[in-house]
Write a protein that binds this DNA or RNA. Sequence first.
DNA 1: CAGGATCCTCACAGATACTG
DNA 2: CAGTATCTGTGAGGATCCTG
Lengths: 126, 126
Amino acid sequence: MTTFPGDEEMFEQPCPIRDVLDRIGDQWSLLILEALEPGPQRFNALMREIGDISKQMLSRTLKQLEQDGFITRTLYPEVPPRVEYALTPLGRSFLEPMQQLVAWADTHHHMIVAARARYQAIQEQT
Amino acid sequence: MTTFPGDEEMFEQPCPIRDVLDRIGDQWSLLILEALEPGPQRFNALMREIGDISKQMLSRTLKQLEQDGFITRTLYPEVPPRVEYALTPLGRSFLEPMQQLVAWADTHHHMIVAARARYQAIQEQT
DNA sequence: CAGGATCCTCACAGATACTG
DNA sequence: CAGTATCTGTGAGGATCCTG
């Protein structure tokens, strides 16, 4: 436990966008959200779909996303246990502006790569 | 130096969006880009505008943004030295989808905060 | 003025093991 | 099946000092 007593105060993030970027800027959140876009998924299904995520990180990230209201977690009291994660309307609405960004990334990525190559070339002609 | 010989291979990022998120997901890149939106700025002007960034992080982040073609760095060989940073067309075009996301964050942030409060409340009624 | 070099530290990811 | 607990290292970022 890294938390301490006064921790659950849920300190206000001064800047909304930072709050959002902290959530989706991490390695996995966006991947999970997009894996959930077609429909609800179970834990191990997400593991398989994402591929190289550890159980721990998947678990942590899902909990964060749930906390922030992007997804819901539904436990079906069966045996063996079944848990389904699904996008909330909030999570789904978030995906819209995000798709814009993804589209931008797709169309402009080659320019970034080119810029890096250019920069590197200049560095090398010392 | 943390780099090693084979480092400058500029390994391909398999996923464009990750490449972009890695750049703007960090604490400062977006802040800098938006600080540059009105027009070119000098190093110390950026320091003042952003407020709580260290020289080191500003320097590093600017270099990254320059490498990736989001901004240009222009050194005026005067004394004292003057360096101006400015958005490239690429950087400016990036700001458009980003504004969408910022707008989303602004309008939905209260829902995130509310979701957290709700989650916390449930946790406490153990 | 605009940074680079160095050192430090601490929060966070990965591995492993255990559980309802 | 769907997680939690603990332990540990690693690397990003801060502080400080130095330079063209």
